[in-house]
């Protein structure tokens, strides 16, 4: 699926929650619970995303030209939020990630359920993922 197809899928899922805040929060946490596990050895200080109020660990690798992210967080809601990004960016090429335009946050009304601090944290996660993509792009170009 393309980045935008996944985004549209997410928008569709959230629209079924009908704006109910409690159901939305529970759903986000449920998505987090489904995220594939990250190895404990990856949960290092160096892998922490800077600028997040909660702890968010993020690692990435590139296989056959596609990026694979793994993440975890000490809070369930943040884990759910990062899982949305992973769903969008996983198995995409570095170029696609770098050139992507994320619009799903606005469409699902994310600003309603993540405050200013979490919004900044969420922006940091996206930035960190794009930095990984940039590094892989450079690496692949050299190879």
């Amino acid at each position: 699926m393309t980045v935008n197809q996944v985004q549209d899928e997410i928008i569709n899922e959230f629209s079924l929650l009908d704006g109910d805040m409690e159901m939305t929060v529970f759903y986000i946490m449920e998505l987090g619970q489904r995220l594939s596990e990250m190895s404990e050895t990856d949960k290092t200080e160096a892998n922490l995303v800077k600028g997040c109020q909660s702890k968010v660990w993020l690692v990435a690798e590139v296989t056959d030209g596609n990026v694979l992210f793994k993440a975890d967080s000490n809070t369930a809601i943040t884990k759910g939020l990062v899982s949305l990004l992973i769903r969008i960016f996983n198995n995409q090429t570095p170029e696609t990630i770098l050139g992507s335009d994320l619009y799903f946050m606005h469409r699902i009304g994310m600003e309603r359920f993540i405050g200013t601090q979490r919004s900044n944290g969420f922006a940091s996660m996206i930035k960190q993922m794009k930095l990984y993509a940039l590094a892989f792009k450079t690496q692949l170009a050299k190879a």
Partner: peptide, 14 residues
Amino acid sequence: GIHPFDVGQMLDAR
């Protein structure tokens, strides 16, 4: 087993 932030946010939802 549940982070206080999560509890706070879930309570806010109600």
